[in-house]
C-alpha cells in the first residue's frame, strides 16, 4: 500500500527516532543504548536518565519478551482501524529491560496472561512504514 491510500495515523519521526523507524523498514528492532553507562532506553529520546549523557548508540534487540498487560479493543477510535476489530494490543517486557506496545498476531485473546513468552515480528504498512507486531514465542 502507498502512503497516499493509507488511512491510519503515521508516526512523525524526528532526529532521535529516525534510526528506529529506518531499522523497522529492514525488519530489525533496534533500541537506544547510552554510550557512557550502557543503560538501554525506549522510547527514543536524547538524554540517558541514569547518567545524563547524550552520547547514544543503537543496539540490535533480541525481539524476545513476555506479556506485561493487554487490552482487546472492540471500538475503533480512529476510522482507519474499523476493519481491524477486535484489536488486541499487547504491552511487552522485552528481554533488554524496556517495553513496547503493539498489536498481537496469532495470539489467542483467551490465553493471554502476564509472563506469556512472545516475540516481535514486523509488518509493512506502507512502502515507507513498517510496524512491529507481537506473535507467540
Amino acid at each position: 500500500m502507498t502512503a497516499a491510500t493509507y488511512d491510519k495515523p503515521l508516526p512523525p519521526p524526528n532526529e532521535e527516532s529516525r534510526p528506529f523507524w529506518e531499522a523497522m523498514k529492514e525488519h530489525r528492532l533496534v533500541l537506544q543504548k547510552c554510550g557512557a553507562c550502557g543503560k538501554v532506553r525506549h522510547y527514543p529520546r536524547p538524554v540517558c536518565d541514569a547518567c545524563f549523557s547524550m552520547d547514544t548508540e543503537w543496539m540490535e534487540a533480541s525481539g524476545k519478551g513476555q506479556v506485561h498487560s493487554w487490552t482487546i479493543s472492540h471500538h475503533a477510535f480512529h476510522p482507519g482501524f474499523k476493519g481491524d476489530l477486535p484489536l488486541v494490543l499487547v504491552i511487552v517486557d522485552l528481554d533488554e529491560g524496556v517495553r513496547m506496545c503493539a498489536q498481537a498476531r496469532d495470539l489467542d485473546p483467551e490465553g493471554l496472561r502476564i509472563g506469556l513468552p512472545v516475540r516481535v515480528d514486523f509488518e509493512d504498512a506502507t512502502d515507507d512504514l513498517t510496524l512491529p507486531v507481537i506473535r507467540p514465542a
Partner: peptide
Amino acid sequence: RVFGEYEMPSGNIAPAQLYAPMARRHMEL
C-alpha cells in the same frame, strides 16, 4: 507526542485503550 509516535500507529489511540491495560494488570495481580 511520544505514545502518539510509537503506539497510535498500532491503533492505541484513546484513553479507554490506554488505561485498559492498567486495569487489566490490576485484575491479574
